[in-house]
Design a protein around this nucleic acid. Sequence first.
DNA 1: GGCTATGTTCTATAGCTCTCGAACATCAGA
DNA 2: TCTGATGTTCGAGAGCTATAGAACATAGCC
Lengths: 103, 103
Amino acid sequence: MTERSFLHPGAEEIALPDLLFALSDPTRLAVVAALADGAERSCGELGGDVPKSTMSHHFKILREAGLTRARPEGTRCRLTLRRAELERRFPGMLDAILKHAGK
Amino acid sequence: MTERSFLHPGAEEIALPDLLFALSDPTRLAVVAALADGAERSCGELGGDVPKSTMSHHFKILREAGLTRARPEGTRCRLTLRRAELERRFPGMLDAILKHAGK
DNA sequence: GGCTATGTTCTATAGCTCTCGAACATCAGA
DNA sequence: TCTGATGTTCGAGAGCTATAGAACATAGCC
């Protein structure tokens, strides 16, 4: 991690179009679906066989859209879904979408 | 209308990433929100001050994503939201999103 | 200090998206 | 049939996005 902490938008700054755009990519939607159980995961666990630089790009988009929160831990980067905040700002929406992830 | 009828995906072909992408543009999201009451509207009513060719492009994306149904009527083109079909394929999702349109 | 693991950033490239003027197609009405 | 209204399609330009290799940064461990 070159920077100690990542940029995350505040809950009130999260914009619906940005959220939907971030979720409109199958790779990113899969990442969010994998985080849906609330557990914290490292980037490596979420990448599959996609190159790291490509995944890093997707992680950045998810983070800046306000979907995920990134926390550096050693040389790793741990990700969580910002479930509670998203639920407060867009009640019911994330669940309604994730229920259909995979379609 | 140069072609008598437009291409619409069947309900089963509608893909979630395509839906989310179509909704991730503020102009298109506004169109969908305007159609949310179930009423049929012509393209002209939905355009605002955006050039017609630009709107036509957005209408095409909405249509091909499976969100709207286009019906030629005279020289006009009438649009409706494919609410029932979308509700059957992605229960609760569209409402959950439209509830927050504008944010 | 050297080595390895984990990610990020940089750079490049190909392809896509948005926008919009111009030309075209279709229909209704006078 | 001519005209106006309504949209679509075509073409071009600017900007963005996805992908991925290469270089770099950081932390843990020997």
